[in-house]
Design a protein around this nucleic acid. Sequence first.
DNA 1: TAATTGTATCGCAATATTACGATTGATTAT
DNA 2: ATAATCAATCGTAATATTGCGATACAATTA
Lengths: 109, 109
Amino acid sequence: MGVTKSEIYTSEQNTLAVQLKAIAHPARIAILQELIKANACICGDLVTELGLAQATISQHLKELKNAGLIQGTIEGVSICYCIEPRAWKNLQKELNTLFSSFKDTNSCC
Amino acid sequence: MGVTKSEIYTSEQNTLAVQLKAIAHPARIAILQELIKANACICGDLVTELGLAQATISQHLKELKNAGLIQGTIEGVSICYCIEPRAWKNLQKELNTLFSSFKDTNSCC
DNA sequence: TAATTGTATCGCAATATTACGATTGATTAT
DNA sequence: ATAATCAATCGTAATATTGCGATACAATTA
C-alpha cells in the first residue's frame, strides 16, 4: 500500500499526472521559467541563479528530462538545456482541453 | 533536509506549484473530470465510479478542497462537490501565461 | 599525462504522499 | 430514541520526494 494504482486510470490520465507532477515543484517551475526567459540554451548558470546545491539542481533537471519537457545537449564541457517544444506544446494542449472542458453554467453549489 | 525550500521562490511560483501538485495525481484528475462531466454537483458516486476506497477518495477530495479547486456543500445526508469556478479559471490563466511565454524561436538544441 | 571544469550519480536523512481498514461524526428515516 | 447512511478522520504501512555532501565521470586545457 501507499503506491498509486495506475492500472485503474486511463493512460491519458496517467501521463498527464506524470507531466504535471514534473512541473509541480517551485524549483522546477523556476528552472522552466529561466529556460524560457533566456530564450536560449542555458548551461550551468541555474545553480547560481537558484539557491540550491548542484546535486539538487541536477536531480530536478533529470526529472524534467524524464518527463520529456526539456532536453540537454552536450556543449563542450557543459551541458545545454532548453524546452522540448513538442512535449511543451502537447502538455499545453492537454491542459487547455481539461480546463476549458469546464463550463461555468453549473453554479449549483 | 528533505523539505522544499519555499522561502527561496516567489509566492507566485509557490502557489502555482501547490495547485499543480493538487491536480498532479491520476485519481484527482479523474475526480475533476467526473465533476466536470456531470455538469452538476456530485455526491458520493465517486467511490463507486473510481476503484478506490472511501477513505482514499475522501482524502483526495480534501486535497482538492485545500487547494481551493473544488467546493463541497452539505446536501442532506451526503455532500455535494463541484468545481470552484474562480480558482479553476485563475489556474487556467496562470498556466496559460506560463505555457505561452515560451516562443519556439530558440531552436538551438 | 595531469589538472581543471562542469555535470551526474550515490548514499543518506528528513519529510511527504498514497492507500486503506476502522472508527467517529452528522444527518435523515423509522 | 434507534437505526441507517454517507462522509471525515485516525492510525498505520509502504513508498516517494526533497535536499545535499561526497564522489565519480566526461571533456577540455595546460
